[in-house]
Computed example of a mutant assay.
Amino acid sequence: MTVEAVRTFLARNAPDLEVLELDASTATVEMAARGHGVVPAQIAKTLSLRIKDRALLIVTSGDARLNNRKIKGVLGGKPRMLGADEVVMLTGHPVGGVCPFGLATPLPVYCDISLKEFDEVVPAAGSTNSAVRIAPERMASLVGAEWIDVCERPGTPAEAAQP
């Protein structure tokens, strides 16, 4: 059902894009990267969070980690991951298939600048075995996302300094 919501969204807003469905699960970054033949960083993972009383989505590079200090500075509070039931209720997508397309509830969407390193990224498409290949700028434009800097990538000074 949720893949259909994504297909409907794409048919209306980006009919040239195709939902890719694999036989194997792509529910984790590593599984998705293997399945789609890309590096893990090219997987556009969508995190479902709550900051204070506001639910929102942040789409990041697959190998990026949230930096709580940056999030607090940009979005005004400490993030908490939503529970699986709340994720399904708000997005219409299961954990492992969450994406910014075809949402059940309008939610603010933010894209971390870590995605801008790539010409093409691979976000999920509403199920644990579906995805879309898309340019990060186009993805952000399609969903009305705001670009923010709230992550650290492996090997960056802030990441390397953490115990």
Rank of each mutant, 00 (worst) to 15 (best):
E86G: 04
S61Y: 06
A14Y: 07
E152G: 15
R138Y: 12
P154T: 00
E137A: 00
L66D: 06
V109T: 08
R69I: 15
C111W: 11
V143Y: 05
G77N: 12
I43L: 04
L103P: 07
I43Y: 01
V121C: 08
I148Q: 10
E152K: 15
P94E: 03
M139L: 06
L66C: 05
G37E: 06
G126M: 04
D149Y: 06
A32C: 12
R34G: 13
L47T: 05
R138V: 11
R138Q: 09
V19E: 02
K78T: 14
F9I: 02
D149M: 11
L49M: 00
A145I: 08
R69C: 08
R80Y: 14
C99H: 10
G83M: 08
I51V: 09
D23Y: 08
M139W: 03
F118G: 02
P154L: 00
T46P: 09
T26K: 00
L17G: 03
V74C: 10
D63C: 13
E21G: 07
L82Y: 06
V74K: 10
T105D: 07
D16H: 10
G37L: 12
V132G: 04
D53Y: 14
L90Y: 10
N129Q: 14
V6C: 07
A140L: 08
R34P: 13
P108E: 11
L20N: 13
A160G: 12
M1Q: 09
E30P: 02
C151H: 04
P106W: 02
E30T: 05
T91H: 15
G92M: 06
E4R: 06
F9T: 00
H93F: 12
R34H: 12
Q42G: 03
T91E: 15
N129H: 14
S48F: 08
K52I: 00
T128E: 15
A84P: 08
T105G: 03
P163S: 11
W147Y: 09
A161G: 02
K78L: 14
E86W: 10
V109S: 01
W147D: 10
G83E: 07
K52Y: 07
P79M: 14
P108Y: 15
A64I: 05
T60P: 03
V109A: 07
G97V: 04
K70W: 05
D119L: 11
C111M: 10
A104T: 08
I43T: 04
E4F: 02
T28V: 04
P163M: 12
M31Q: 14
V29T: 01
G35L: 09
I43W: 02
A41L: 03
E137S: 02
K78C: 11
I51G: 12
S61A: 03
V150M: 04
V109H: 01
S25V: 10
H36Q: 15
A161I: 00
P163I: 13
A158W: 11
V150A: 05
A44M: 09
D53K: 09
A44V: 11
A55E: 10
A145E: 05
P154Q: 05
A140K: 10
N68G: 14
T26C: 01
A160R: 14
S61F: 00
A125Q: 01
K78Q: 12
G83W: 05
T2R: 14
I113D: 14
V59A: 01
L10K: 01
V98T: 04
S114E: 03
V87E: 09
P106R: 01
A44R: 08
E152W: 15
A33P: 07
H36W: 14
T156N: 01
I58F: 15
